[in-house]
């Protein structure tokens, strides 16, 4: 079954595997664009209105906070790019858990109580989601003897059981897959635009990617 177009570049670097289909390339370019935005853009200054009056003030992001968050946003962009292009199930799960950490990191330096609370709760979920995530990768290796998505896509290897696929999806969901994060919406209220957007972007990208992975293997 033709899932996302024929891969037009397969890069095998020892057992690391990168492959580009039209689909993954689209996602990669999108992640790349936003990572570049995160690198070159100054953070936005969120305007708040003083309640009951005409006054308003703009929240500023301090320089050291900006540096830290920019670093985390770039790391998050790189991790999601890796998750999008990799052709190895275990690398995929690793990149996804990296995305989980970076999402926490992006808002960790914001000194707003409810944002930190949300980030902490989200982090707990993300950390516990590594069990189904790594579990799925290990079970795939145990039942089929390979981790390469291209090998798994061929008819010759043993089929991956739906239970394992469900575990994989569950793990990705826990790490922050797009529609299933109540805590993340709270995190987005933190000021500093190009950085908080990376949280949302990475979760959408890993959602789009995990669909392809589940269909391919």
């Amino acid at each position: 079954m033709n899932i996302a177009g024929e891969p037009f570049l397969v890069l095998e670097f020892a057992d690391e595997l990168v492959y580009l289909t039209p689909y993954t390339t689209t996602l990669l370019l999108f992640a790349l664009a936003f990572t570049i935005f995160a690198i070159i853009s100054r953070p936005e200054r969120q305007v708040d209105i003083v309640f009951g009056g005409d006054a308003f003030y703009a929240k500023k992001t301090s320089l050291s906070e900006m540096r830290f968050r920019r670093f985390m946003a770039i790391a998050c962009g790189l991790a999601s790019m890796g998750a999008v292009v990799t052709g190895d199930i275990f690398n995929f799960t690793l990149f996804i858990s990296l995305v989980g950490i970076c999402n926490v990191g992006i808002v960790a330096a914001v000194k707003i109580r409810h944002v930190q609370e949300a980030a902490f709760q989200y982090g707990i979920v993300a950390l516990s989601a590594t069990v189904p995530l790594f579990g799925a990768a290990a079970l795939t290796a145990a039942t089929t003897g390979t981790l390469s998505m291209i090998e798994l896509g061929k008819a010759t290897t043993a089929a991956v059981s739906p239970v394992i696929k469900a575990l994989l999806v569950l793990g990705v969901m826990g790490e922050g897959m797009a529609p299933f994060y109540a805590a993340k919406a709270e995190m987005f209220r933190a000021p500093g635009a190009p950085y908080v957007i990376m949280c949302s972007l990475s979760s959408l990208l890993i959602f789009l990617r995990v669909i392809e992975v589940v269909l391919v293997i």
């Binding site: 690793l94 950490i101 960790a108 930190q116 902490f120 982090g123 950390l127």
Partner: peptide, 24 residues
């Protein structure tokens, strides 16, 4: 080969979370 990165990621997440806990 798989455990080591898994372990590293786990430790990193734990450290990040404890840092947030301290901040919060």
């Amino acid at each position: 080969a798989l455990i080591l990165p898994g372990l590293v990621v786990g430790i990193a997440e734990l450290l990040a979370l404890s840092q947030i806990y301290v901040m919060k």
